[in-house]
Amino acid sequence: MIEVDNLTKRYGDLCAVYDLSFSVEPGEILGFLGPNGAGKSTTMKMISGYLRPSKGSVSIYGKDMWTQTLEAQCLIGYLPEGAPAYEEMTVEAFLGFICEARGIENSRKEDALNRSIEMMSLEPVANQRIQTISKGFKRRVGLAQAILHDPKVLILDEPTDGLDPNQKHDVRDMIRNLSTDKIVIVSTHILEEVSAVCNRAIILNNGRIVSDSDPMSLLEKSKYHGAVTLETKPDKVSELAEMLSRQLFVSGSEKSGRNLTVFPVLGDRELLVKLNDFLREHDFPVSSLRSEEGRLDEVFRNLTKGEPK
């Protein structure tokens, strides 16, 4: 497991990360969310042992990152931001170098190489120089070097940044399919990635943790959680809003184009049924009716910026 204690990083007067404490258990896929400059990358750089914290400690399966650095780093696979690699090397030579640097014995080197290349579907470019391959392949080379030694802990800084939708899908599949005894920490600013991949999400803002929960309970924080959005003719929206505002089971509504979002009174989970009955009763034409799970972007804005306008 990973234990992070009172982790703090200062650059002069600026406090990039302030007093973070959390622990991650095997099997957890932890998403780090936050606006740019919230301290995601700085935190990951400290966990991977690149940056030395101003205060606090990181321990990886009991190995302290600053007193047992090499032992701790052996347990980690790390994809730095932007997936840097030695551009003048071929994909295979680069991965071979990482194998040696990771201390993988020659007898197991071939297997490790093949496994990584296969998992990341790098066969077509294995003998090409990294500077000549596409951005998507480059990102996958970065991921391949991180999983070469089959590490217990994977730290991936924006692993899907700059990939096309198909590649994003593949990378997410790869992360989900890692065996369940691994720890994965992923940073991202793509919200849907969290609900697609992670089973735990930490939201950072100004270097502090503002939320730590599973993605579902994040959604529950949304004011849209439990609300119902219906679609009707544009000229009917205001009329319907007016009618509904007099109903006891409605606490409010929000118009946007031909859509009307209706909010339940606190704790009411039956809004959809009640609304459906109401519409049928008044014979009101509605083309669609759906229940909202909640909107992550709204929760995100709330947590990182205060109340949205």
């Binding site: 090499l70 780093q73 052996c74 790390y78 690699a85």
Partner: peptide, 8 residues
């Protein structure tokens, strides 16, 4: 960053 996070 890659180089300095390898166990060397």
């Amino acid at each position: 960053e890659l180089l300095l996070t390898l166990p060397i």
